[in-house]
Structures are given as structure tokens and as C-alpha cells.
Simulated assay, not measured.
Amino acid sequence: MPNPATTLFHRAMHLLLAKDMPGFIALFADDAVLEFPFAPPGQPGRVAGRAAVHDYLIDYPDILDVHEITEVTVHETTDPAVIVTEFTAVGVVVATGEPYRLRYIAVLTVRDGHIVHYRDYWNPQAAQDLLGGGLVRS
């Protein structure tokens, strides 16, 4: 039987590629938390609650046009509700038309078919460079 956290992660990546942000956001629990341990100054390190997740992510496709999620590795843990994922997002920075390619590591915790905690590790300096110093989103 597939790990539910792994299945949910793959569903999330499918929705992200489809630019279905309402569908992507619906995967988060009402009390979900996004954490960005490497967030640069002026950017949130934590977004709590589905409503806040919505506000943070709803315009994501207007910032980054992600075409591919590559180099995907999912590490299942001894806790079936927790996975560690590695992947690369490939696309275009909408404002500039410049290519975007950034490696991510994310730790997901799921409960009852929803993401309750998404800890996103990425290189904020590389993201700022790619986005031309603009808004950094993971």
C-alpha cells in the first residue's frame, strides 16, 4: 500500500504544475503550518493556517511559471505521516522571462489526508538572484 504522505506530495506537485493553486491549497489542513527556516529578512519564516497559506500561495503562478518538477526523491521515514522530499523546480520567472531552476528539500507531515506541516528548505540567495531581488517565494 502506498504511503499516504508520499501520495499526497505527488498530488501536490501535480496541482502545482497544473497551476491549480486552489486545489494545491486545499491539500493543507485548516491548522497547517508552512515553515521557511532559511527565509531572508523581510520574508515570512512561518505561515500558519489554511487562510494564510492561501494568501501566501494563491498568486504563485504570477511569480513563477513552473514547467517541471525534476530530480524527485522521496524519503519515507519510520513515521508514515512524515516524509522528506528532494526536488528541483524548473520554469520561468514571470516578471523577467528568465529561466528559473532551484533545488528544494521539504519535510511534510500529513494527517487525515491533508498537509499539516510543510517545512521548506531552499537557498534564499539563489532565489533572490533568480527573481532579480523581487519577492522570494519557495
Rank of each mutant, 00 (worst) to 15 (best):
P41S: 11
T77I: 04
T88P: 01
R46Y: 00
V53H: 06
V53I: 15
T85K: 10
T88E: 12
I83C: 10
Q43R: 06
T73S: 12
T88N: 05
F87R: 15
G45Q: 10
P61K: 08
I58W: 04
D79Y: 02
T77C: 13
V47E: 05
V90D: 05
V82K: 12
P80G: 00
I58R: 13
A89P: 01
A48H: 03
A48L: 09
I58C: 01
T73Q: 15
V90Q: 12
G42L: 09
A81R: 15
I83D: 03
V74E: 11
V47W: 00
A89K: 14
A81K: 13
D59C: 00
P61R: 03
T78G: 15
H67Q: 15
E86D: 01
T78F: 01
Y60G: 02
T88H: 10
H67R: 15
F87H: 15
Y60S: 04
H75P: 00
T73H: 14
P61L: 06
P80H: 11
I63V: 12
G45C: 01
V74W: 08
V90A: 07
T70P: 03
Q43P: 00
D55C: 02
V82M: 07
P44M: 06
I63E: 04
I63R: 08
A51K: 13
D55Y: 00
I63P: 01
G42D: 08
D65M: 01
V92H: 04
H54T: 12
V66A: 11
D62S: 10
T77V: 07
F87G: 04
A48S: 14
P41L: 12
T73V: 14
A51W: 00
D55L: 09
I69C: 14
D79V: 01
V92Q: 14
T77K: 14
V74Y: 06
T73K: 12
G91R: 02
V74F: 03
